[in-house]
């Protein structure tokens, strides 16, 4: 088990590294992958310079921040998806489908609205996002749960309702916000990776690390929850405590991701599903593998989003929805056998 985990992580880390190099080298100006790696490596190794200054600027200043952002947002959304799926015992749970991303976006808009949109206040926006996400997650759970169970129908409907509510709230808020701030707000609705400054990215990474730790420590109890809360309790787990931890941790990482990218849908649905298909449903593998696979997935989809119709960029959220909606429909038709326990 431990060796299998290490093997999987090694393969996925290599895959992620390859995806990052690919993402850095393609674009309006193509840069060879050897040069790209050398430009990256020159930060730590004394390499002979065989690239132009322009190439270095493109890789390090224009492309790298966005690729790093894709890494962080992709991992965060996949992690949150894996966590929500485990506690809802439902493979269709995804931060966007559950309305949690909308709640997070509303939290961020509230942060901007109350004056945290500029200066050092920007560093707190991920936490505003997390708070909004938590409110949405707890609301969805409250609406959807029937005698401690989460039937798929009520869960999806509750997600739709909460999502619509917060989207409307964002529109109302943006109508009240001054025009110059409005442009930024619109990003939260489409789901696009914007260039972010490194301090903000640092805060988001911090949230992601804390969330990952909290969720991974619950990996084994999350496995037990697959057989229902009573069965988990009879094995000595504490379902209520596990659910609280997962709600807080998943909201934290979703909120942090949404604060820099807006709502990118279906990443949290597709990635953990693909991981479970390859590795089985054991959360001790699924959680860390989803983290790396999610990063790889979003780096590649964002590369597609900015190159497929170049020089026009498509929001990455549109690309993930194009891919994710059919997967969602497929899962709904095949994986859904009545109400889960």
């Amino acid at each position: 088990m431990r060796r299998r985990l290490l093997g999987v992580m090694a393969v996925l880390t290599a895959g992620l590294a390859a995806a990052v190099v690919l993402a850095l080298s393609v674009g309006t100006v193509g840069i060879g992958w050897v040069q790209t790696m050398a430009i990256l490596g020159a930060n730590v190794l004394p390499l002979p310079v065989f690239w132009t200054e322009a190439e270095e600027t493109i890789v390090l200043t224009l492309r790298l921040p966005r690729v790093l952002l894709a890494v962080v947002v992709g991992s965060a959304l996949s992690l949150a998806g894996a966590g929500f799926q485990a506690i809802s015992r439902n493979p269709l749970a995804d931060p966007a489908v559950l309305g949690v991303s909308s709640g997070a976006a509303f939290g961020v808009v509230m942060g901007v609205f109350t004056g945290f949109g500029a200066g050092a206040g920007v560093l707190l926006l991920p936490l505003f996002g997390a708070a909004g996400a938590l409110v949405a997650a707890v609301t969805v759970y409250g609406i959807a749960s029937i005698e401690g169970r989460l039937p798929i129908q009520t869960l999806l409907l509750a997600g739709v309702v909460v999502s619509l509510f917060f989207s409307s709230a964002i529109m109302v808020a943006s109508a009240l916000i001054r025009a110059e701030e409005l442009r930024g707000i619109v990003f939260y609705l489409i789901g696009q990776l914007r260039l972010t400054d490194y301090p903000t990215l640092g805060v988001v990474v911090g949230c992601l690390l804390v969330g990952t730790g909290l969720i991974y420590l619950q990996a084994l109890p999350l496995n037990l929850l697959a057989a229902g809360e009573e069965a988990a309790a009879q094995l000595g787990a504490e379902p209520e405590r596990v659910k609280r931890i997962i709600f807080v941790a998943c909201s934290l990482v979703t909120g942090a991701a949404v604060s820099v990218s807006g709502s990118v849908a279906f990443v949290g649905l597709m990635v953990p599903h693909a991981v479970r298909l390859c590795l089985g449903p054991d959360n001790r593998l699924v959680i860390p593998a989803s983290l790396l696979a999610g990063a790889m997935f979003l780096v590649l989809t964002d590369t597609l989003a900015r190159t497929v119709a170049a020089p026009v960029e498509i929001p990455v959220g549109a690309v993930t929805s194009f891919l994710g909606a059919p997967v969602f429909a497929y899962l709904l038709r095949t994986r859904y056998r009545g109400v889960y326990p």
Binding site: A226, A227, E230, R276, P281, P341
Partner: peptide
């Protein structure tokens, strides 16, 4: 406890 109903939401194997 051996409960009256036992269902698992994800495809865990018997061994797991």
């Amino acid at each position: 406890v051996v409960p009256q109903e036992f269902q698992v939401a994800f495809p865990f194997t018997v061994g797991q």
